[in-house]
Amino acid sequence: MSPTSVQLYSVRDAVAENVDAAVARLAEIGFTHVEPYAFHERTADFTRAFGAAGVTAPTGHAPVIDAEDASAIFDAAAELGMSLVIDPFIPTDRWQTADDVRRIAERVNELSEQASARGLAFGYHNHQWEFTNKVDGRPVYELFVEQLEPAVKLEVDTFWATVGGADVPALLRSLGGRVAAIHVKDGKIDDAIRDVLPSSESALIVPDALKAAFENQTPAGQGDLDVAAILAAAPQALRVVEFDAYRGDVFDGIAESFAWLAANDAEVTA
């Protein structure tokens, strides 16, 4: 039975304003797990907020691949009680060739060994370009996974993988137990955004078409994705609700996704 979590990046403005209040509001919705981002930058704040709200952080995002001192990030993860650290973003310009993929995979494998020495696992989170970008007709994501050591975990962002052209239920089935977590999000899937990429500096510096894709995201079950089929294909995976952006009150959207999962995903527990 897989629990459900929420990526705190979804409520980043609220976290920046008052992390304690933001986490408490998510706990009121019903979440007992959260997925913090850049947790090594404010570990004490997160520790306090999580303890007060009665939530835990089994997973967390941090820019580990490019970190000069990955040990500091892993130490912060251990302090927060995490079991899995995930790097959320390597820009599209570094996923262009077979050599690019090899370099990233080697670094991920190295970091997985470092994490394991601290009792942690390490993994990677995709966007659409790992599926849009191809080498010899194959998505670079496939090449990447083939070169990973067995201990490396994956967090599949099911929305962006779909945008990138992947058959996500089939992808999840093929990856099996390597998928430790999935980002559950829904929205409008438009072929026009498949090849529209953000800047190399930030996933948030995007053309207007991609900005609209962010804002058109919906609570689970209200968009174009077959979320039920996606969930069924990864029964072992932690479900992590996420919105890149939302036109309404994002806490309301998160609550709707939480309620939909509770009613429609047989694998979800609190």
Results as ranks from 00 to 15, higher is better:
Lys185Gln: 07
Lys134Leu: 15
Leu84Arg: 05
Gln7Arg: 00
Arg25His: 13
Asp69Gly: 04
Asp190Val: 11
Asn109Trp: 02
Glu256Gly: 05
Phe46Met: 15
Ser5Met: 08
Ala22Asn: 10
Lys134Cys: 11
Glu68Lys: 03
Phe39Glu: 11
Asp87Trp: 01
Leu172Thr: 10
Val55Arg: 00
Ala161Asp: 12
Ala27Val: 11
Asp100Pro: 01
Val135Gly: 00
Ile205Val: 14
Ala229Pro: 12
Asp45Cys: 04
Phe50Arg: 08
Ala220Ser: 06
Ala77Gln: 02
Arg103Ile: 09
Ala115Arg: 03
His127Pro: 13
His125Pro: 06
Thr59Arg: 03
Gln7His: 13
Asp190Trp: 09
Leu26Tyr: 11
Leu111Ile: 07
Gly253Asp: 07
Glu113Tyr: 10
Ser10Cys: 06
Ile193Thr: 14
Asn126Tyr: 03
Ala170Pro: 04
Leu210His: 08
Asp20Tyr: 02
Val15Ala: 12
Thr47Met: 12
Lys188Tyr: 02
Pro63Ile: 00
Trp95Arg: 14
Ala151Ile: 03
Leu261Ile: 14
Ser174Met: 10
Val206Ala: 01
Glu35Leu: 04
Tyr124Trp: 13
Gly176Glu: 08
Val108Glu: 01
Asn133Gly: 09
Ser116Cys: 06
Met1Asn: 04
Lys188Arg: 14
Asp226Arg: 09
Leu84Ser: 06
Gln147Pro: 00
Ala234Ser: 15
Asp45Pro: 01
Ala16Cys: 09
Leu111Ser: 05
Ser10Leu: 11
Val108Pro: 03
Leu8Gln: 09
Ala263Arg: 13
Ala53Asp: 03
Leu80Ala: 10
Ala232Tyr: 04
Ala192Ser: 15
Asp195Lys: 09
Arg239Ala: 14
Val156Trp: 01
Gly253Gln: 10
Glu28Asn: 06
Val85Ser: 07
Phe50Pro: 05
Ala44Trp: 07
Asp226Val: 12
Glu113Gly: 08
Asp100Ser: 01
Val11Asp: 14
Gly119Asn: 07
Val196Leu: 04
Arg94Gln: 14
